[in-house]
Amino acid sequence: MICMTSELVTANNTGNIALGIDDQCVEPTDYMRRYHMDVLLHQRDETVLKGIRTKKHSLVGCINCHTKQDGHGQNIPINDEGQFCESCHTYAAVKIDCFQCHRSTPDIEVANDE
């Protein structure tokens, strides 16, 4: 399963360069696998409560990097079956609550105006 996740990560580096990161996540992969929820939770409170808007640990960054595209160049929602977030979360049986409110693809502007 972990292999599958790594495959996803490497098979999909759209936007990595734009974020200034090459082939690597914002933190070491092992760390992210174990602690991404803490990282996101921390950033969430910093942003919502205090208005701290650093890009490094933002959920939007995750989505921009880790979203795959289908054959027609359309973004596939990151929580769709088999996609980056969903594949692991289904395996671990942990419900993701992010995408009830957050969009699950890069923003329209990012995605469609090419």
């Binding site: 939007v60 989505i63 009830q100 409110c101 957050h102 969009r103 693809t105 890069p106 923003d107 329209i108």
Partner: peptide, 11 residues
């Protein structure tokens, strides 16, 4: 809701 703005999450 779907396709919210990334800068304005709502649900």
């Amino acid at each position: 809701l779907e396709n919210q703005r990334s800068w304005s999450p709502r649900g």
